[in-house]
Amino acid sequence: MTPAATTFQMPRRVAQSRSTTESPFVRRLLIGVALIFLSLFLVVPLVFVFAQAFAKGVGFYFHTLGDPNAWSAIKLTLLAAGISVPLNCVFGIAAAWAIAKFDFRGKNILLTLIDLPFSVSPVISGLIYVLVFGAQGWLGHYRDAEQPWFLWLQNWLNEENFKIIFAVPGIVLATIFVTFPFVARELIPLMQAQGRSEEEAARVLGASGWQTFWRVTLPNIKWGLLYGVILCNARAMGEFGAVSVVSGHIRGQTNTIPLHIEALYDDLNIAGAFAMASLLAFLALVTLGLKTWVEYQDARQNTAEEKISL
């Protein structure tokens, strides 16, 4: 190799690497900018929650959490999530089955309508139930109606003084609304991508509809389903705006954890508010951890299936 050839090749290699990746300086600069931005907006607030929660010591922390009103808020939050997550799960599976396994007209409209609750402001999500079930709303009009459709129903409602708004049923309904699309929007694209051939094969081999679902469909969608459930649960336990409109803020009765945080904050009990908030911040960390684990499991299952099909 002549010296001329080496001097010719060297700059060419350098030029090419510069064009397909950045110089170490630019690289470090970009990583630095990204990390500073993320620490400022994510890490500092997260650390701050726990720092404030324990600012008045561990004793105060557990005193706040042991308060009867705090307990009732925790129980109400678990109840609302415990009802809304399973219901939206059943809905998500049913919707995904109908949309992914069959052809019908208006599918795109249905998909858009399912996503609708995501684009509605939380305050409006609460408001709509006040308009339906509140004293000024449809239910209120019905209770005062002179000639109602079902007299026994009107009598029963008035005798029992059945309340939805400013009571627990309203909180559950608002939670169902804001978490409505989570499971469905995870499962629909997943089941559409998987197609229907496996289920059809199971049916042809003599499996019943339920057997097909339990033995073929469910194992295929389990990670996507779990992913949707995790996100749905996080939102259900943390919802604030919608629940705030329908709750009525009765301490010890209709306050969820986020509403109890607001009440403590308004009392200027900042350490108490952050103690409650730390519960939800911890839930958020668990959610992120589980989500990452599910993504990893799903990727592993996919690569394993690719190997088998090869």
Partner: peptide, 29 residues
């Protein structure tokens, strides 16, 4: 870092609200 990017999805808005309010108040960090 990749997992943490989703924190604003997972952290309830009321928690984010009081945290930012105190963090950016005149005696916050």
């Amino acid at each position: 870092v990749d997992a943490l990017v989703d924190l604003p999805f997972a952290l309830p808005t009321a928690v984010a609200g009081i945290t930012l309010a105190i963090l950016y108040s005149h005696n916050g960090w």
